[in-house]
Write a protein that binds this DNA or RNA. Structure first.
Lengths: 251, 251
DNA sequence: TGACATTATTAGTCGTATTTAATTATATTA
DNA sequence: TAATATAATTAAATACGACTAATAATGTCA
């Protein structure tokens, strides 16, 4: 009675509601088909829903919603429809795609934010200042360039990298241990920590090199894949991935 | 290598990325604290991420992102930020709430629809026709009436009921089996199916009444809780919930 | 270096949601 | 009415994501 309804139980309830709308009564087979699950999953879900007072259910008998179940189902259906509505009317997403997306989103949306979505969709329709004119432009624009995910995937990396570079600089200036991987030629520092289990860690260990040894970066090659260091009497060439396991304190 | 990354693994990856941004290196304890999970959960997640090539990880050693991991993490971070951005700038959701909501939503959003969200947020900022004027109105409106979820919960039931009524009528007109529960006084039909396990089903069974018997609805009481029927020589009064288990074919 | 506190890992368990395989109930047909 | 087909059930198994308790590794301080 007290446990909260889970996302998947909401799905079952919603499906029962929709099938009851159409056929008066829901049968496990149809529920399973609608949700893409097998019979036993449905049986279990129905028993849970019955135990918690959402449906009338007895083995081999007809399945219908209780008052409580109908109310709960309507809330779920409402969420679903509101989201789909938003996606279609505001974001100009294609109907089928919007429906599928709404299915996944509906369980992750808090009631308050759901209301915002609804209000916004209404607002777009009724705002006296532009009466949809402005938003039609958006829909049109969306349908013109179908590039969607492609044209932004590349630039995002760069923009995030920029943020990172900035932070990097700040850290470099400080005295915090840094990763050898990120150091530039001319850097000089002391090993703060190294991983004995990694290949490079073992190589260094075998040479008797441990925490505290002074290390110098000599060269970083073209694509940034290799880094050449000098340590004690040795000159070593490391892959950046190896260098990711060594922390250094700048001197 | 082939299995898809799950929602929670994305969370771990995102967290590792963010901690690496700040401290060069991520430690299990901090990851756990950031995600609100215990140590062992982190260990398991890290092993999965390492097995699938997202991070460099060996027990007790430093954790850093691989190339693949960094790329994947950036995608996740981008999703998160884009969603939060949308919620804050377009839907005028309060920053902290938006951040939490974005956490939950980000795993349920397809790339294509995510792009729509981003495009729309940009559109709102740059649309030359209103230059934000119109959307400020929405934000203002949201902050005026804090009613959000309350004022709509009631009407939704009604609107859904309307849809249902319409479908109901259509079905009633046809010859499909209907639920006795939904029949009105004067209805005459034949029992199509009944549940022997329910109390009313047993009562009827005991009277020797089975599928095919002719049934007549005499009266439906006030609040619609009871339904009076005539069957063979008997007059019976049923609760609607009982009547939900009997299907009838109209004559 | 040794003892201690901190942190990380392993092993075992729980709850949810699903599956397959085998069983039982109902419906259909000869 | 018996034989068969369809559907629903139970039981046992798998996967995932989290937990607790016990064990092991590491870093620190005297």
């Amino acid at each position: 009675m007290s446990e909260a309804i889970s996302g998947s139980m909401e799905d079952y309830l919603e499906t029962v509601y929709q099938i009851v709308q159409e056929h008066q009564v829901a049968r496990p087979k149809d529920i399973g088909k609608a949700l893409g699950v097998t019979g036993p999953s449905v049986t279990k879900a129905l028993r849970w829903l019955a135990d918690h007072g959402f449906i009338h259910y007895a083995p081999f008998e007809l399945v219908t919603l209780t008052e409580k179940g109908e109310k709960a189902a309507k809330q779920v259906v409402r969420k679903h429809e509101a989201l789909r509505d938003f996606l279609v009317r505001v974001l100009a997403v294609e109907a089928k795609e919007a429906d599928e997306a709404a299915c996944k989103l509906e369980h992750a949306l808090s009631p308050d934010i759901l209301e915002r979505f609804i209000q916004y969709a209404d607002f777009v329709d009724t705002c006296p200042r532009n009466r949809g004119k402005c938003f039609e432009r958006f829909a049109w624009h969306c349908n013109q360039n179908q590039t969607t995910s492609d044209n932004c995937e590349t630039c995002v990396g760069e923009s995030l990298d920029n943020v990172r570079q900035k932070k990097q600089k700040k850290d470099d200036a400080g005295t915090k241990p840094a990763l050898l991987k990120n150091m530039l030629p001319g850097f000089k520092g002391r090993i703060a920590q190294l991983s004995h289990r990694t290949s490079i860690g073992q190589r260094l260990s075998e040479m008797g090199i441990e925490t505290g040894a002074v290390i110098e970066v000599e060269k970083v090659t073209g694509e940034g894949d290799m880094i050449q260091i000098k340590i004690k009497a040795y000159h070593l060439s490391l892959r950046k991935e190896e260098a990711a396991h060594i922390r250094v304190n700048p001197l």
